[in-house]
C-alpha cells in the first residue's frame, strides 16, 4: 500500500513507527474537507509474533511511557484506563491519573497509589466544548469529545481512554435484528474516533490518542484473543444468537475481563462505562453528529485482508468476502479504457 501520495509530515496518529494511519481520499492524517470524501485507515504489518493482549498491552505501555518520559492516564470509565493504571503502578512508571466528574458524576476509578487529578466541571461546560470539538475535529462522538475534554485540562502526555478495536458482521441487519446474509467480518474504524488525533495534532497536545493501536502486534493480539476468535466463529457459523451480536462488543469486554487480572487489576463490579455517564454521552452524541457533517463515516477493513497483513491465522474460511467479492492483487489491475 504505497502510492504517490504526498507524505504528510507529522500530524495525525502517533503510534509505534506510525504504523496506523488515517486519511480522506488521497490525503493522510488531516481533516475532512467535504462531506463526500472517503475516509480510510491503514495498519502496518507485524514485525514479530504477537504474545497475547496482556503482554502486548504491557509492552505498549512501556514504549509509550518511553516516548514521553511520563504519562497522564485519562480515565473516562473504560477498561483501558483501568489496565493502564495497573500496569503503570506495577512497573513503577512515572504517571498520574486524570479523571473528570461531570455535574459531580465521576467514572469509576480503581484504588491507586498514583497521583489523581480530578477535574470537576458542569456537564453544560463539557457539552459546549464538545460542540466546538465536533466542528473542529470532524467528530460527532461524545466519548471522543470527553477524551479531548480531559486532554484539554491537563498538560501531561495524554494517554486516552479511548478507541477500542471493533469487528462487525456485515451479514447482520441491525435494524431488523436479523441475519440476511452469511458472515462477512470487517474491522470497523469510525472516523469520529480519530477526531482526537486530529484535535491533539492541531492543539500541539502531546500524547497518544489511540493506545490500543500503538503497535501492529497489539492490534493483532486483540483480534486473535480467545473471546474475539469465539465471536468470529459464532458469526461464521450462523445460528440464532448471531443477529443479537452484530459486533464484537461483548468479546471486547470479555477480553478485558480475562486480561485485567493478568495485568494486576481487579475487574470492576460496575459495568463499563458508568450507566449514567453512558446515557448522558449517548444523548450528547446525537446532537454532535449534526455538527460534524460527513464525520460519521466508518472505514471497514475486510478481516481476511487485515489478518493476512497482521499474520493472524484464523483457520480456513473467513466468511464470504474473498470468495464472493473477489480479490485484491499485489499490483493494480489493468483498467483498460474504464474510467
Amino acid at each position: 500500500m504505497s502510492g504517490d501520495f504526498a507524505q504528510s509530515p507529522a500530524p495525525g496518529p502517533l503510534t509505534r513507527d506510525r504504523h496506523f494511519r488515517f486519511g480522506h481520499d488521497r490525503e493522510i492524517g488531516g481533516s475532512r474537507r467535504s462531506a463526500a470524501q472517503v475516509y480510510w485507515t491503514e495498519y502496518g504489518a507485524c514485525t514479530r509474533a504477537e504474545e497475547g493482549p496482556a503482554r502486548e498491552f504491557e509492552r505498549a505501555m512501556v514504549e509509550m511511557a518511553a516516548c514521553f518520559g511520563s504519562l497522564s492516564i485519562a480515565c473516562a470509565g473504560g477498561p483501558l484506563a483501568i489496565a493502564a493504571i495497573a500496569v503503570a503502578e506495577r512497573l513503577g512508571m512515572p504517571a498520574r491519573v486524570v479523571t473528570v466528574a461531570l455535574d459531580g458524576v465521576a467514572p469509576p476509578l480503581p484504588p491507586t497509589r498514583l497521583e489523581v487529578l480530578r477535574i470537576d466541571a458542569p456537564f453544560a461546560e463539557f457539552a459546549a466544548f464538545a460542540g466546538d470539538f465536533a466542528e473542529r475535529a470532524g467528530s460527532g462522538c461524545g466519548w471522543t469529545a470527553l477524551a479531548a475534554f480531559i486532554a484539554a485540562r491537563d498538560d501531561g502526555p495524554h494517554l486516552a481512554d479511548h478507541g477500542e478495536i471493533t469487528l462487525v458482521d456485515h451479514g447482520v441487519d441491525r435494524v431488523r435484528a436479523a441475519a440476511p446474509a452469511p458472515g462477512n467480518i470487517a474491522l470497523a474504524d469510525a472516523e469520529a474516533f480519530t477526531g482526537l488525533d486530529r484535535w491533539m495534532a492541531r492543539e500541539g497536545r502531546p500524547g497518544i490518542a489511540q493506545p490500543l493501536r500503538w503497535s501492529a502486534e497489539l492490534v493483532a493480539a486483540q483480534l486473535a484473543c480467545p473471546p474475539m476468535r469465539h465471536w468470529i466463529a459464532a458469526a461464521l457459523a450462523g445460528g440464532p444468537t448471531r443477529a443479537r451480536a452484530p459486533d464484537s462488543h461483548s468479546a471486547r469486554l470479555a477480553m478485558w475481563r480475562q486480561i485485567l487480572p493478568v495485568l494486576g487489576a481487579a475487574v470492576p463490579a460496575r459495568p463499563w462505562p458508568d450507566p449514567e455517564l453512558r446515557a448522558r454521552i449517548r444523548l450528547l452524541t446525537r446532537a454532535l453528529r449534526r455538527r460534524a457533517p460527513g464525520g460519521g463515516a466508518v472505514h471497514h477493513h475486510p478481516l481476511h485482508r487485515l489478518a493476512s497483513r497482521l499474520g493472524i491465522d484464523f483457520g480456513p474460511g473467513l466468511g464470504e468476502g474473498r470468495d464472493l467479492y473477489g480479490t485484491v492483487g499485489a499490483v493494480p489491475p489493468d483498467f483498460g479504457d474504464a474510467a
Partner: peptide
C-alpha cells in the same frame, strides 16, 4: 454491507 474489498489508500 461489506462488498468493498479495497481498504486504506487503495480506496483512492
Amino acid at each position: 454491507h461489506g462488498q468493498m474489498q479495497y481498504c486504506g489508500r487503495e480506496l483512492a
